[in-house]
């Protein structure tokens, strides 16, 4: 048999309804963007799960290293002044 491959991997992101965030649904194999969209539609929206799809070549996605998660995400915990509950409001003030 001639050279065969399962084509490239594309990651699929779906918007479930208008106004919602795009959420990762999974991946598909396709040779080009049109096929990637078509395959994503066939694979991930058989029951009206989406109103819109993004497909991205998997090789174009860059991910953070899980081992760096402390370094990357911990500082947020000691900046509690970013939370509205940090502040004391004067007695009687409304709608704030």
């Amino acid at each position: 048999m001639a050279t065969d491959s399962q084509l490239e991997i594309w990651e699929v992101f779906m918007q479930s309804k208008s106004g919602a965030n795009y959420i990762h649904a999974g991946s598909v194999h396709a040779s080009d963007k049109r096929m990637a969209l078509q395959n994503a539609r066939d694979t991930y929206t058989r029951r009206g799960e989406g109103t819109s799809i993004w497909v991205v070549p998997a090789t174009a996605i860059v991910a953070s290293d899980p081992n760096d998660s402390e370094m990357l995400f911990d500082p947020a915990n000691d900046k509690i002044y970013r939370m509205p509950t940090f502040y004391t409001m004067p007695e009687g003030a409304k709608a704030i």
């Binding site: 998997a58 860059v62 290293d65 081992n67 760096d68």
Partner: peptide
């Protein structure tokens, strides 16, 4: 998907995380 590695931790340490 590409993984951006900033630090090369010891494998043992990572397995402990696991």
């Amino acid at each position: 998907m590409e993984l951006l590695k900033h630090s090369e931790e010891e494998n043992e340490e990572s397995l402990k995380h696991f």
